[in-house]
Design a protein around this nucleic acid. Structure first.
Lengths: 196, 196
DNA sequence: CAATCAATTGACTGATCGGTCAGTTGGAAA
DNA sequence: TTTCCAACTGACCGATCAGTCAATTGATTG
């Protein structure tokens, strides 16, 4: 069952991803969600809190996709590469529908609001933590199979997320989704060069 | 000589970096620059055009820093590492003054406005082009000294910029400038693993 | 001196912003 | 049947938004 709250979160995700947080007004957002102003503020104390909820849902969704990859029976090297396919697929779909690369809600909001809105930054931090767990597991698997040196996997997970976000940024800057996976082929070599 | 136009550009850079484009109004910007509203619109047709000018100056400034590194007499491996120090130093200074990591004007505006404002995206594309030239030169030097395989240096320059921006994003998301250089140590290994 | 014009002023506009609130609705509990 | 409350409505608020414009300044020309 899709509740009004769900509709608000999904609409917010769609609109904030398509443009940005500041460029989407609450009036437009409510109209797009088929809901009245007051209803938004019945469920969320502020526009920022709606965004935080959207980030949390977005993080959970992508986190689950990462988890599915980590738990699959593919080879660990293959899993590492597949991580980059998750945002790549999302962006390809979006660009087909709307004509430009939108990036990642977490990355976008991080650079727009990371220095301004502390609650949102906390939601972003939590999103990154959620994502790091399955990535860390894949790195452990790589070590077990001998494909990766005994590096610090927590730091390694940060590196992988940095590679993904770096590619996403290039893709949006140049409006070319193919850049998203630009940093995928070198990921394993990159990780292997980290000091244990 | 610092012209009124220069003051406007510098003030815009400072404010847009400190918060974001949408969160800074023209009234505040003008007050901060010690200039009247009409003067802003005497020099720039719109707020977006002021941003584009700020991006261009910012890109030139960082591009010169990259160029200085490329033309120095340091070892090529050392030069590659020094590229990451340019934004790292800027962010360390800023955080000392303002208490948080602000990131990079080009990266920030790319994720905030890349999908919305096409002229700004063009300014961003041009900034990346400017930065790629000295990076490409360093990669050629690495190849000459035998530290790097004969990879596609244009693609390699994109990779390096992606690594820098990925680190900047992590730093802003976690309000910790030390992440800026997180992807520096693995850069050479990363590049070396690219297919020629 | 007169003429010119880029630079600058600051009050002003209509639109939109995020957020509020008194009131209505409809289904569940008593 | 009455009571109750979460869900929802939509008009409304003061503030701020990007942008405009007629008037003024002052330095540079002929």
């Amino acid at each position: 069952m899709t509740t009004t709250r769900d509709i608000l979160i999904d609409t917010a995700t769609e609109l904030f991803l398509g443009r940005n947080f500041g460029a989407v007004g609450t009036t437009e957002l409510c109209k797009s969600a088929g809901v009245n102003k007051g209803t938004l503020y019945h469920y969320f104390p502020s526009k920022s809190d709606l965004l935080a909820a959207a980030i949390e849902r977005y993080a959970t969704s992508f986190g689950q996709a990462f988890r599915d990859i980590a738990d699959s029976d593919a080879a660990p090297e293959e899993k590492l590469r597949q991580l980059f396919d998750v945002p790549a697929r999302a962006n390809r779909d979006w660009k087909t529908r709307h004509g430009f690369a939108q990036g990642c809600l977490v990355g976008n909001m991080s650079l727009e609001l990371g220095a301004v809105d502390i609650p949102v930054r906390e939601a972003i931090k939590h999103a990154l933590t959620t994502w790091k767990a399955p990535v860390r597991d894949i790195l452990h698997q790589l070590i077990e199979t001998g494909s990766l040196a005994r590096i610090d996997c927590d730091k390694g997970a940060d590196v992988v997320i940095g590679l993904i976000q770096g590619g996403l940024l290039l893709a949006k800057a140049q409006n070319d989704p193919s850049h998203i996976t630009l940093l995928a082929p070198g990921a394993l070599a990159h990780l292997n060069s980290l000091k244990p």
